[in-house]
Structures are given as C-alpha cells and as structure tokens.
C-alpha cells in the first residue's frame, strides 16, 4: 500500500518537474515582457535545484547527513552509510541558489535601466540593434 502511494508520489513529482520546465521554457521563449522572462528564468533555475535535491534523496528511511558525535564509532558510521541522504547535491544547490540570486538581481537592474532609457520592457519594441 505505502509503496504504491510513494510510487505515485514519485511519478507526480517527476511530472511536476517536467511541467515546471515546460512553463519556464514557455515564459522565456514566448512572453514578450522582460520581467516575465526573468521570472521564467528563475523558475527554470529553481526547477533545476529541486531536481538535483531529488537525486540525492534516498527512498525509504532517509536521514539528515549529519554524524552527531565528534568521534563516531563503527556502528554509527555504518548507520550513517545506510540512512543518510547524499549531501553533495545540497552543497551544489546552495552554490547555485546564490549564483541565481545575484544573476537575477543583475538582470533586474539592467531591466530597470532599459526601462529608463527606452520607456518599454517589451522585447518586440526595444529593438535598435538588428541585421
């Protein structure tokens, strides 16, 4: 019973992730407003982060990847090996979140400056360079 539920949950998760990527790509490609594009870009980045968190997850009996004692015994180490989730994806995600935040801030600053100079955020109108 629980296995069916968890299986369904996993499928639901994957569908959600694929849907989120589709939404992000739609926003980036189709929406003309620059702010919408930036929002879609952060959705894409967050989806990638969620996806890599998933990969580190261990099905059934996952624990926080922390060894509570300073000098662990062999049993504790074996327990850690059996139950801990993969800590590396979380490190990657921390890095990626910080980078995404700064890039988004930079993009928004550029968008504000573009609005000041062109008076529009519509990418179909803000076109002086072409050819």
């Amino acid at each position: 019973m629980t296995s069916i539920v968890s299986q369904a949950l996993w499928i639901y998760f994957y569908i959600t992730l694929i849907g989120l990527i589709a939404i992000a790509v739609y926003g980036i490609v189709v929406r003309p407003n620059l702010l919408k594009k930036i929002i879609a870009l952060s959705i894409l980045g967050d989806t990638a982060n969620t996806f890599i968190i998933f990969l580190g997850f261990r099905r059934g009996g996952a624990a926080v990847p922390i060894i509570p004692t300073i000098k662990p015994t062999l049993e504790e180490l074996l327990w850690f090996k059996e139950t801990a989730v993969d800590p590396l994806p979380q490190c990657l995600v921390i890095t990626a979140i910080v980078i995404n935040m700064s890039v988004t801030a930079f993009l928004i600053a550029l968008a504000i400056q573009l609005y000041r100079l062109y008076g529009t955020l519509d990418v179909r109108k803000a076109v002086r360079l072409r050819g």
């Binding site: 490609v29 189709v30 990418v123 076109v127 360079l129 072409r130």
Partner: peptide, 18 residues
C-alpha cells in the same frame, strides 16, 4: 536571414536557439 532570423527580438532568437 535578416527578416526572420536576425530580427533583434529576443523571442525569435530563443525560438531558433531552442
């Protein structure tokens, strides 16, 4: 090339890139 691809509009560019 100039009228349909290199339009300078981000949406067209993204279409070709994707």
């Amino acid at each position: 090339l100039r009228g349909k691809v290199h339009t300078g509009i981000l949406n067209d560019w993204f279409f070709w890139m994707f």
